[in-house]
């Protein structure tokens, strides 16, 4: 069962050198409040496992990452993530590049205590060239087909963000897509849930199939209102496209990034939310088009 924790307590329970899984997909339902807190922490040398978005970008920019394990890193409405690009192009990080389906099979294997799962995805592609140690396996049956053996993606900790969670750590999503968050929770030794809103046990409501993450897989849960910002969440928490454009434009230029980091990332989560509120307020007052 999950204990109600603070953002700082969750990040304080992590160690440098760990493999950290991050739920969501691209710039959608990412545990950004926890990511921002890791950026402020003394953690370093992390391996980040993610269908990557600005979570990977911010952690790269903060120098927290040794290796990224991902099939892509994107902001969705903006195709390329500037910080991830810079980190790859400067050689600052190592990269394990999987096909999207391979990645899911790795999570499925990890979640079900299997050493690997077989798939056709990857055969004939350069994924097998650039991921050393990746092996194929031959079907023991009559077909004798050769398949890629995707190794289990296991993690020391997973961070996922849900629209709703209860104080025990049960989590519900309100959007159209659960992404792979339940698999991250199951494949990791520990899972921490952040949520837009926290309710008492029994108060999650909704169709039962939207109860995605179970307390049996959750170590800690924290309420972070707007904690998924600026990524897309359920109804009422759509992606903040204007702010994402501001993020991406700033990230593409060192001086602009220093100003962005100073304005939005130098304080705690409450300071971030206040700075974003002010940014939008000025945006409205000045009638700027971004």
């Amino acid at each position: 069962m999950g204990a109600v924790m603070s953002i700082e307590e969750i990040v304080g329970s992590l160690d440098s050198g760990m493999t950290i899984g991050i739920g969501g997909w691209g710039s959608r339902r990412k545990p950004m409040a926890l990511v921002r807190a890791i950026c402020r922490s003394s953690l370093t040398d992390l391996t980040v496992v993610s269908y990557g978005g600005p979570d990977v970008g911010l952690l790269c920019a903060a120098g927290k990452v040794r290796r990224v394990v991902a099939p892509f890193v994107t902001l969705d409405s903006i195709a390329l993530e500037p910080h991830f690009r810079a980190a790859r192009q400067s050689g600052a990080i190592e990269f394990t590049e999987y096909d999207e389906g391979m990645f899911m099979f790795g999570l499925l294997a990890g979640a079900h205590r299997l050493p690997f799962l077989p798939t056709r995805a990857g055969l004939g592609s350069d994924v097998l060239r650039v991921v050393p140690g990746l092996r194929t396996v031959r079907s023991p049956y009559e077909d004798g087909e050769e398949l890629v053996a995707v190794p289990a993606l296991t993690m020391d900790a997973a961070l996922v963000h849900l629209d709703l969670a209860d104080t025990r750590g049960n989590g519900r999503y309100l959007g159209a897509d659960p992404y792979l968050d339940d698999l991250f929770a199951k494949a990791a030794a520990r899972c921490y849930v952040s949520c837009e809103r926290m309710v008492e046990p029994g108060g999650l409501g909704g169709p039962p199939q939207t109860l995605l993450v179970s307390r049996m897989h959750v170590t800690g849960v924290v309420e972070t209102p707007d904690g998924g910002h600026f990524t897309g969440r359920g109804p009422g928490g759509e992606r903040d496209e204007a702010f994402q454009r501001h993020y991406a434009a700033s990230a593409a230029d060192p001086e602009a990034w220093a100003a962005f980091a100073d304005r939005f990332l130098s304080g705690d989560e409450a300071a971030y939310q206040e700075a974003v509120r002010r940014w939008h307020e000025r945006d409205r007052v000045e009638g700027e088009t971004r």
């Binding site: 990557g52 991902a70 099939p71 892509f72 890193v73 994107t74 195709a79 390329l80 991830f84 690009r85 790859r88 192009q89 590049e97 999987y98 096909d99 999207e100 389906g101 391979m102 798939t119 056709r120 995805a121 990857g122 055969l123 004939g124 592609s125 350069d126 994924v127």
Partner: peptide, 11 residues
């Protein structure tokens, strides 16, 4: 130039 990553192209 780092682009998207292989995404789902191999599969």
């Amino acid at each position: 130039s780092q682009l998207l990553g292989v995404r789902g192209a191999p599969g």
